[in-house]
Amino acid sequence: MTVDGFALAHLRRSPLGHLADRLAAAEATGPGGVRLREIPFLAQLNLRLDPAGPAAARAAEALGAPLPTLAGSVVATADLRVLWLGPDEWLVVGADGAAPTIEHALRRALGDEPGSVVDVSANRTTLELSGPSARSVLEQGCSLDLHPRAFGPGRCAQTTVAKVQLVLDQIDAEPSYRLLVRGSFAQYLADWLLDATGE
C-alpha cells in the first residue's frame, strides 16, 4: 500500500511538529552554539537481506551505492543515506515522498531472494542536533564514544540517548547528528534535548 503523501499533506502530523517553535527558540550561537530541529516525514525503508547474496548487488545498483557492510557505517548518495543497522539489515533514508519509489526499487532488487523491505517512514522521526556543542549535549545522555577519533561523519550507531533507543547518524564534522527516534519517544527525547541544550 502506498501513500500519496503530497495529496494528503494537510492531514499529516509529525511527532514533533507542535514543538517546532520551541526547538527553534532553543538555538544558541557562538562557539558553544547548538541547534535543534525536527526533519519530519523522511522516507525510511528497512531492508533485510543476505549481504553476500545476489540481491545485495542488485540493491546496490538500485540505490546507486553499495550497501555498507562495515558495522556502524553509512553510505550516502545525492538522494539517500544507507545506514548499517545489522549484518543483514539497513535503513535506507530518503527525502519526504520518496518512500514508494525506494520501496519499489528495493523490492525489485530483492526479487525472489529471501529478505524483506518494510516501509518504516512513519515509525521514526528525525531530530537534527548540530553546532559546536552538539557532542557535549549528546554526551549528557549517551554512553557512546563520540570523540572524532572514534565516531564521525559517515558513522551511525543504534544506541540509547537518555534511555531512549535510537539510530544516531553523524552528518558532518561541525558536528551535526541526526537522531532517528521512534515516534512514541520523540516528545520525551525532544524535552530531554531541550533541557540538555539549556545546560
Binding site: A71, G72, G86, P87, S143, L144, A157, Q158, T159, T160
Partner: peptide, 11 residues
Amino acid sequence: PWCGERDETEY
C-alpha cells in the same frame, strides 16, 4: 562482535 564496545545496559 558487530558494533564494538558498549555499556552493559545496551544488552
